[in-house]
C-alpha cells in the first residue's frame, strides 16, 4: 500500500483527564432503618462520563448496596430519572464535563421512595393508563392504508417523544402536594392521541382531563418543560388541551 506513507501525521490528542467528584446520595432502606441518610462518595470522573457512570462506579467499586434503576443507559428507556443537583434529569444524559465537582443525588419527588433512588412508579402509571393512551376508533376498519397528512402528523409530533421517565410529573409542585393530579406526563400522552387525526377518542379523553384533578390543576410553573429529557414543550401541550376543552376544537 503506497497510500500509507502519504497519510498526514496524526496530531496527538490529549488523553482525557479525570477529576475527583464528590457524589452525595440520599440513602434510604426501610429493611434496615426508617431513617434517611446522606452518604458521600468520592469517584474519579472523566469529562465524557455521565452521572450514571459515576453511580455504576460507586455501586461496582465502593458500595454494592446502592440501589437505582437503569436499563438502556442511553436516554431512551427512561428508567433513571433522578434529582441531580436539585433538578430532575436522566442520569444517563448528564455529562460530567457540564457538572461541578459536587453532585447531590436524590430520588424524584412526590412518589413513595422504595429504596435509595428507586421510587414506586405505580401512581404515575395509573394516571397514564387513566387517559387511555391508545388509538380509539369506531365503525368499520379501513380497507386501505389510513393516510395522514404531514400537517396532521405535525400537530402532535412533539408529544410522541415521551419516554415515561416521570421527570416532568415529579418536578411539578402541584403533583408534590396533590398526588391525585394526573400530572404532565399523563396529559402529554393524552395530547398525543387527542390531536391525532385518526383517533376518535378525543371527547372521551378531554372529559377525563376536565376533572378537578385534570388539566385545570396546571399552574404553568414550567418545571415540567425544563425537566423533560426529550425537550417536549409540555406546558404548551397542556395549554393546548385546556384550549381544546374550552373551545371544543381539536
Amino acid at each position: 500500500m503506497t497510500s500509507v506513507a502519504e497519510r498526514p501525521a496524526v496530531t496527538p490528542v490529549d488523553a482525557p483527564v479525570s477529576r475527583p467528584v464528590e457524589v452525595k446520595i440520599r440513602r434510604y432502606n426501610p429493611e434496615v432503618s426508617e431513617d434517611v441518610t446522606w452518604v458521600t462518595y468520592t469517584v474519579e470522573a472523566f469529562p465524557a462520563d455521565r452521572v450514571l457512570n459515576l453511580l455504576m462506579k460507586i455501586k461496582g467499586e465502593q458500595d454494592g448496596t446502592l440501589t437505582f434503576r437503569r436499563s438502556c443507559a442511553h436516554g431512551v428507556c427512561g428508567s433513571d430519572a433522578m434529582r441531580i443537583n436539585g433538578v430532575n434529569r436522566l442520569a444517563c444524559k448528564v455529562l460530567m464535563k457540564d457538572m461541578p465537582d459536587r453532585l447531590t443525588i436524590e430520588p424524584i419527588k412526590g412518589l413513595p421512595v422504595e429504596k435509595d433512588l428507586v421510587v414506586d412508579m405505580e401512581p404515575f402509571f395509573e394516571a397514564y393508563r387513566a387517559v387511555k393512551p391508545f388509538l380509539i376508533t369506531g365503525g368499520n376498519e379501513p380497507s386501505k392504508e389510513w393516510l395522514q397528512s404531514q400537517a396532521d402528523r405535525d400537530r402532535f409530533d412533539d408529544t410522541t417523544k415521551c419516554i415515561l421517565c416521570a421527570a416532568c410529573t415529579t418536578s411539578c409542585p402541584v403533583f408534590w402536594t396533590d398526588g391525585s393530579y394526573f400530572g404532565p406526563a399523563a396529559i402529554v400522552n393524552a395530547h398525543r392521541f387527542i390531536f391525532d387525526s385518526r383517533d376518535q377518542g378525543a371527547e372521551e379523553r378531554l372529559e377525563i382531563l376536565n376533572d378537578r384533578e385534570g388539566v385545570w390543576r396546571c399552574r404553568t410553573t414550567f418545571n415540567c418543560t425544563e425537566a423533560c429529557p426529550r425537550g417536549i414543550q409540555i406546558t404548551k401541550a397542556i395549554a393546548e388541551v385546556k384550549q381544546a376543552l374550552l373551545f371544543r376544537r381539536v
Binding site: 434517611v36 434529582r83 436539585g86 418536578s171
Partner: peptide, 20 residues
C-alpha cells in the same frame, strides 16, 4: 411494609427556574 409517608417528601429544595 410500605415506606412511610415521610419518605415521600424531604430532600433539598427543587431548583426550579423563573417559571417556578
Amino acid at each position: 411494609s410500605r415506606a412511610p409517608a415521610k419518605t415521600k417528601f424531604g430532600g433539598t429544595l427543587y431548583r426550579g427556574r423563573e417559571g417556578m
